[in-house]
Design a protein around this nucleic acid. Structure first.
Lengths: 348, 348
DNA sequence: GCAGTGATAGAAAGCGCTTGCTAGCAGAGT
DNA sequence: ACTCTGCTAGCAAGCGCTTTCTATCACTGC
């Protein structure tokens, strides 16, 4: 029923071996023969059987990209950049590879299961993006999985994610700590002394690093920490909205709200406005990531731009073996402070 | 080097066949035997060889999701919902399936290539999302591909995409025409008579349908069309920005700008503001899709909400054979007009 | 004119798994 | 006691491809 290599071979009057070689192009085949084979392929509308080929060759052309939330442009932009370099169809990369993105939804179990699924498919490479869950049992399970993948010849790249020692995984880490620190320093420089902070989920590396940067800036400015000023939530708008109301309840005198990311900041803006507060006159707001919509907020969001596309592209190239990994397999990618209208000197 | 079924079998003192049956669970195996096998699997840290299994069983557990732009939440939200139902890891679906999203970037060639790649992998199902390219040669090529996929037993579902006749593909289509019409009717009802329209790429079904709906509303209101009022662009913010400046140049007396989607609308807002125009006092703006950030625009965007998550979930279930396809394999999903602050009665 | 040399093509042995069919065996029925 | 039946487990034949090794053939050079 379905066309096989043998059918093509018969039609082209050559052996299956020859057809295989024409298709893979890694063995000399006379031009005339090649043409005959190609014609037969075309006429029969033959499509290689991926599993069979992967089995025989002991390699596959699958590349997995793990993201925490595919509906979040933060990941979408990275995934897009990675995929662009993987080649996938249309990429300038050589053999066509199937770059697939897997949505973990931030769940550690799903992450692990996807990793297993990818291992099962004998993926050529795997790129993990975004913050990792820090809880020890999970972190260790992931490390073990990555080690095993590497052993099986799968290239592993971490993009915007902290290094995982002893796994052979290349890490392009975002300098969340530094970016957050610069951001808060900017606010402090404007004169803010009472700053609320809306953090992400408590067990994520990204959350911790950004919070650490924020606190480092406060400490450097001699501002004493107030436990009421930090609220944990999720990385979405809704969470920013809720958390802001909570912050306002805890301390109505806050002059600035620093959000874990831009979506959260947007939710914060909405909550502030609903509370009758003007931005930035009454309360300044700052985000993180500088996603495309952030510049359209009114006022435009002061935030930290992360080179998502660049980092993704680089991760993609490294995953494809088209670029040298950084020395030591680890490098830190810095963000850039984007000063815009949502943060100004406090007036109260 | 790598552990195989045979290794597990040896360790559990059973035949490979038995191990396979334990793992697939579709054949009676005595409880004691099963347990012994499972223990061996665990001890050896065995991971099934996907390609081998797919080859032997002539099926795979891969489900492909094609999106036009993975960095666009419009697709991200649908993809997320689809993936949630596919089961993937963590889903309540039975056997674990690898739901993968493929980013075509809106390119017809890539779309075709991904389809081939998926066919090559003998995917269990494929879900195509978003508008299709209408150019005849391409549309036909896609139709042929879908037909072939269906023949090979791959379930094909179109989500937010027009039906493709004679392919056996199930279609959950968005009623873009109706939504657009309702939106423009709303604006016209507010008193607008000179409305600019920023369309998407000219060859997309989505673009055409929305534009048709818009024009139908104008016609119904007896408003004569002006060719200057329509500008084509892409589905992104930047395009909205540029197109708006162009519209303003062509006819500074416009009182409303209707955008192809919310991102475009955001760009339009920015351009209007830069041009010294207030929203909605001087110019009303309307979007489409109602993405999460749209409510945070200032003023909040009047737009048409598309049930992206619901449609995606349904598409996912159908792809998994867990829900009956709609009668005739085709159904239209309606949008809902969201009246918000960005559109008001014209003042000039 | 004959061995030597390259260039091409074929034969065949798997790759690791699934599954139809068969075999063994214990308890049930007569 | 003997066949029948139902439950398990094993055998072995592939699934469709890649790749090593070998064979063939046309030249080349002496």
């Amino acid at each position: 029923m379905t066309v096989t290599l043998a059918d093509v071979a018969a039609r082209a009057q050559v052996s299956p071996a020859t057809v295989s070689r024409v298709l893979n192009g890694n063995y000399p085949v006379a031009a005339s023969t090649r043409e005959r084979v190609l014609r037969a392929v075309d006429e029969l509308d033959y499509v290689l059987n991926g599993p069979a080929s992967a089995l025989a060759a002991a390699t596959s052309d699958l590349v997995g990209i793990l993201v925490n939330d595919i509906a979040d442009p933060f990941f979408g932009i990275m995934a897009s950049a990675i995929q662009g370099e993987i080649g996938g169809p249309g990429g300038r990369a050589g053999g066509e590879r199937l770059a697939v993105v897997c949505n973990t939804g931030g769940s550690p179990e799903r992450e692990l299961t996807y990793l297993t699924l990818l291992q099962r498919q004998r993926a050529a490479a795997v790129v993990l993006t975004g913050g990792a869950v820090e809880a020890a049992p999970h972190a260790e399970a992931v490390a073990a999985k990555l080690r095993r993948l590497a052993e099986a010849g799968t290239r592993v790249v971490l993009c915007g994610r902290p290094p995982v020692p002893d796994t052979g995984a290349v890490a392009l880490t975002f300098d969340n700590r530094g970016g957050a620190r610069a951001l808060t320093e900017h606010l402090v420089g404007l004169g803010h002394r009472r700053l609320g902070y809306i953090a992400g989920p408590a067990d994520r590396t990204t959350t911790r690093h950004r919070l650490e940067g924020h606190r480092a800036a406060l400490r450097a400015a001699g501002i004493e920490e107030d436990a009421r000023w930090t609220v944990y939530g999720r990385y979405d708008r809704r969470s920013g909205h809720e958390a802001t109301l909570e912050l306002l309840r805890r301390d109505p005198s806050l002059t600035a709200v620093v959000a874990a990311n831009d979506s959260v900041a947007l939710g914060a803006c909405a909550a502030l406005r609903e509370s009758g507060l003007r931005i930035p006159e009454d309360v300044s707001v700052a985000g993180f990531d500088d996603l495309p919509f952030s510049i359209d907020a009114v006022p435009a969001l002061t935030t930290v731009r992360l080179p998502l596309a660049e980092a993704g592209a680089r991760a993609g190239r490294i995953a494809m073996g088209r670029e040298e990994p950084p020395p030591g397999g680890i490098t830190s990618v810095r963000g850039e402070l984007m000063v815009r209208g949502s943060a100004a000197a406090p007036r109260r």
